[in-house]
Simulated assay, not measured.
Amino acid sequence: MPAPMFRPAVPGDVDALVGLVTAAYRGQASTAGWTTEAHLLEGQRTDATMAAGAISDPAGEVVLAEIEGALVGCIHVQHHAGAAHFGLFAVDPTRQAGGTGSALLAQAEERARGWGCTTMDLEVVAQRTELIAWYERRGYLRTGATKPFPYGDERFGIPQRDDLHFVVLRRDL
């Protein structure tokens, strides 16, 4: 498989971005990859308003990965006061486990370093042990901090269990 090319997202990418994130995490299409959350959450993972907000974020950038013109991955990296955060991280489920996610994460870390950031963090649903392990293999450590899941806000999905919460992971850059 050819290596992905990277570029910043633009407003015209909103629909493709929403479709990619949905395919990677929710519904039947997500089960083709290993990042599915369909057993934990139903409904949407993001919507056009949230994607457009990430693209226009003045303190960040949405980076897209494309192979032969096809969108195969995305990540939103933000910075504030010397620290970086990322989210909206997705890879087409039919192309997972091929290095695109690692390459996208490296792109986000490179941008964060360019902004002068010394750490990068993220939140992961605590029940996603295989995903947490993937981040730990890349140097991210659990901080001990947790955040509540936004129950009742269907913009983030419809929980299928009542014990969801996020763990915070961080890496020194």
Rank of each mutant, 00 (worst) to 15 (best):
M1C: 05
M5L: 08
P11N: 15
V14A: 09
D15L: 10
A16T: 07
V18Y: 04
L20T: 09
A24Y: 00
S30A: 15
S30W: 06
S30T: 05
G33C: 07
G33V: 04
L41H: 08
D47S: 04
D47A: 00
G53L: 11
I55S: 14
I55N: 09
S56N: 09
D57A: 13
A59Q: 14
L64C: 07
E68S: 12
G69I: 13
L71T: 10
I75N: 03
H76G: 05
H79I: 01
G82A: 09
A83E: 12
A83K: 11
H85M: 14
G87T: 14
V91F: 00
T100E: 03
L104N: 02
G116M: 04
T118F: 14
T118L: 14
T119S: 15
D121L: 13
D121Q: 15
L122R: 09
E130W: 14
I132Y: 02
I132R: 09
Y135A: 01
G139N: 04
L141C: 14
T146H: 05
K147M: 06
P148V: 00
P150K: 00
D153S: 07
D153E: 13
D163T: 05
V167R: 03
V167Q: 02
V168Y: 01
V168K: 08
R170K: 13
D172M: 10
D172K: 13
